[in-house]
Structure formats: structure tokens, C-alpha cells
């Protein structure tokens, strides 16, 4: 419950404050958000499976974000940033979908 509240409060705060995104993190923010979404869906699925562990969630969340940003950074340095970030988004999207399917099976039993 508190976690959901945290999400809602974060969205509201982001909409209200509308901070200027620093130029340094600008290219990494979208990918990081997608990676974090993947971690959240994975955590939700683990919770429904009854094997949720907050430590695992925290580590996976942070490592997801960091690795995604790292991949984009590396891709930018290698000159394939656009393609690599597309690839990351595709992979994360697939994972999000599979996790969402598991969640759906749990919640709707269908």
C-alpha cells in the first residue's frame, strides 16, 4: 500500500514540480524509466508468486536502472546509441509483457 502510495506521490510530484531534466542524464532517463518499470513488474509478479523479497527488489531495481543507463552510455560512445537503446527497450518490453502475463494469470486466473 505504501509502495503504491509512493508511486502515486512520485507521479504527482513530477507533474507538479516539472523540474528541468539535467542535460547529463537526459538521454538515460527514458531507458532508466523503462528498466525500472521492468523491475517493478517483476517485483509485482514475485509478490503474487509469494516469493517477493524486498532486498532482491531493491537490488534488481537499481541494477536494472544502472545497467540500462550504462548500455545507453556505452552505445552513445560507440556510435550505436540509437540502435542499442532500441534494443534495450525491446528486450525490456518483452520482459514486461511476460511478467504482465504472469500477473494477469494470477489476478484474473486467465
Amino acid at each position: 500500500m505504501i509502495a503504491v502510495l509512493g508511486l502515486v506521490v512520485g507521479v504527482v510530484a513530477g507533474l507538479l514540480v516539472r523540474p528541468e531534466v539535467p542535460a547529463v542524464v537526459e538521454p538515460y532517463l527514458p531507458i532508466a524509466v523503462v528498466a525500472a518499470l521492468d523491475a517493478v513488474f517483476g517485483g509485482l509478479r514475485a509478490m503474487l508468486d509469494g516469493i517477493f523479497d524486498d532486498k532482491v527488489f531493491v537490488v534488481s531495481f537499481l541494477s536494472n536502472v544502472v545497467v540500462a543507463a550504462l548500455i545507453v552510455f556505452l552505445g552513445d560512445k560507440l556510435g550505436v546509441g540509437a540502435q542499442l537503446s532500441t534494443g534495450v527497450v525491446v528486450v525490456l518490453g518483452i520482459r514486461i509483457f511476460s511478467n504482465a502475463a504472469a500477473i494477469r494469470r494470477h489476478v484474473f486466473r486467465a
Binding site: 508511486l7 506521490v9 512520485g10 513530477g14 523540474p19 525500472a36 518499470l37
Partner: peptide, 15 residues
């Protein structure tokens, strides 16, 4: 978890 999700929501909204 709430803190992390706050960060996620914040980043999402900002983006």
C-alpha cells in the same frame, strides 16, 4: 520500495 517507486514515478512524470 515506496522510495524506489517514488523515484520511478517521478522520473516517469518528468520524462
Amino acid at each position: 520500495v515506496a522510495l524506489l517507486l517514488f523515484g520511478l514515478g517521478f522520473g516517469l512524470a518528468v520524462q
